[in-house]
């Protein structure tokens, strides 16, 4: 069986900048993986390449053995680090939209989560607060039964209470055989749910290891190790 996510000698250059350099990663199914690195390290670039939003300069990226395209988009659920939904649409319309395009979208699960948060279904996205918008986006993304979830800074701009809610939503909604990649620099918040950690800096992979091994080997938490590695 193909790995659910694989990068082979992947490089991406922007004018005047090497965003990713010779990245090699293989991820198996059923794992929660932290893509950890400081701002500008290449986390978002990697996620965008996996979704076909950028084209590699060299090397390849494969989802379930396939290059990003129509087939991989059926099995990848992606949460970008920006407001990407049409803000003139209501929550109800967005749920219908996702249901129309994604076969694996579970409408009932989405409606239940939205109602549990007390978000009005008829509210247009532009009338909601930033935090609520982010929750709506996450609910839509996590209501899919995808094989691979790519979540770019899902807890970046929200308060600690909302972070707990978001992490709870992630771990209680992904399917057992699916892999979740969470990109963040807020490691202490996600550490408890991670199986593996990938450290990335200046477009290079510094480390890819199970978090238990990392803790045992260095005798400190992943967060403490991260602070050690990326000390300014």
């Amino acid at each position: 069986m193909n790995p659910v996510f694989e990068c082979r000698h992947l490089s991406k250059n922007f004018p005047g900048k090497e965003a990713l350099q010779d990245v090699n990663i293989t991820l198996e199914r059923g794992r929660i993986v932290g893509l950890l690195g400081p701002n500008g390290s290449g986390k978002s670039t990697l996620m965008k390449l996996a979704n076909g939003l950028l084209c590699p300069t060299q090397g390849g990226i494969f989802i379930d053995g396939m290059a990003p395209g129509e087939e991989t988009k059926k099995i990848v659920s992606y949460l970008p680090d920006k407001n990407y939904l049409n803000d003139w649409m209501s929550v109800r319309q967005l749920i219908r939209f996702f249901g129309d395009f994604y076969e694996d979208f579970q409408k009932e699960a989405a409606v239940e989560m939205i109602q549990r948060l007390g978000i009005p279904m008829q509210a247009r996205l532009k009338t909601l607060s930033k935090g609520t918008k982010e929750k709506v986006q996450l609910i839509l993304v996590m209501s899919r039964k995808a094989k691979l979830y790519l979540l770019d800074e899902p807890i970046g701009g929200v308060d600690p209470a909302a972070r707990d809610y978001i992490l709870h939503t992630i771990i209680s909604n992904y399917s057992e055989d699916a892999t979740v990649v969470i990109s963040t620099h807020l490691i202490s918040d996600v550490e408890s749910i991670l199986d593996e950690a990938i450290f990335i800096a200046d477009g290079k992979i510094l480390l890819h290891s199970p978090v238990d091994e990392l803790r045992e080997k260095n005798n400190m938490s992943v967060d403490a190790w991260f602070r050690e590695v990326f000390k300014c």
């Binding site: 979704n51 076909g52 087939e71 407001n83 939904l85 049409n86 395009f101």
Partner: peptide
């Protein structure tokens, strides 16, 4: 633009 993040991740040719 940002809307492209949704458009290009739909399973459509």
């Amino acid at each position: 633009t940002d809307e492209g993040y949704l458009t290009h991740t739909l399973p459509v040719k």
